[in-house]
Design a protein around this nucleic acid. Structure first.
Lengths: 117, 117
DNA sequence: ATAAACAGGTTCCATTTTGGAACTTTACCA
DNA sequence: TGGTAAAGTTCCAAAATGGAACCTGTTTAT
């Protein structure tokens, strides 16, 4: 089954995932909640390639989760801001964060990790 | 940046996504919460290929989110059950579901959708 | 006894999607 | 005149995916 065919799925989880069900999209949204709004910020903070950032921002804007707004006219510059719909996604990120904090603790720095297991 | 390099990330969201940050893994977990436990059930319900199901179940078992248990000896058969760690992931799926229900309503059957917008 | 059926996978290959780096455009700065 | 910056786009090789076929051990139907 193609991923795109999920968007009319009976399951609301499946439909949600057509939009945000990939590695980088959720990291971009995380950045949004942390205050990022510029293309370069997303590229730097997520670690995804510019190619990916570009495609994901497009999808998020098309879905009405982010809004693309000019913040400078003369050197045409845009930023990406969370819409209401986007802001309401916060609980999902919070639950992912909390689960990660509890179940996936960071191991101490590589140099200090004598035994890898 | 490679996806695998995220697993030691400072951000708990990023670490969580190394495990479940892909299309099909979250659908498999959804199925688990709906009572599925067999390979064939996941394949049928998610729509993912057997190849994908196989690799995702492996990852979930390795991560301690699912447990692989024999439910029959003579024809060796296994099922996949949520561990405590896995069960605690429920809130994440619930928030994704709720967001989807609110913001991504299903359009009525294709034949009835006169105007697409 | 033979054949088909079933669960749970694995293998193969063509198509897509990525990762990574370079390049483009428009404008400001020195 | 040259350099920097933001926001993308383009290109290509490598990796992941979709789809279908195949494999293995056991049971059931003929």
């Amino acid at each position: 089954m193609k991923w795109s065919e999920l968007d009319e799925n009976w399951c609301p989880v499946a439909r949600t995932l057509t939009l945000v069900g990939d590695r980088w999209t959720l990291l971009i949204l995380r950045d949004c909640f942390l205050g990022c709004s510029k293309f370069e910020e997303f590229a730097a903070n997520t670690g995804a390639t510019r190619h990916i950032i570009s495609s994901r921002l497009k999808r998020l804007v098309d879905a009405g989760i982010l809004e693309r707004k000019a913040y400078s006219q003369r050197p045409k510059r845009h930023e990406y801001l969370l819409t209401e719909k986007g802001k309401e996604f916060a609980p999902a990120l919070i639950t992912l964060r909390d689960w990660g904090k509890k179940h996936l603790p960071v191991r101490r720095s590589a140099t200090a990790s004598a035994a890898k297991e």
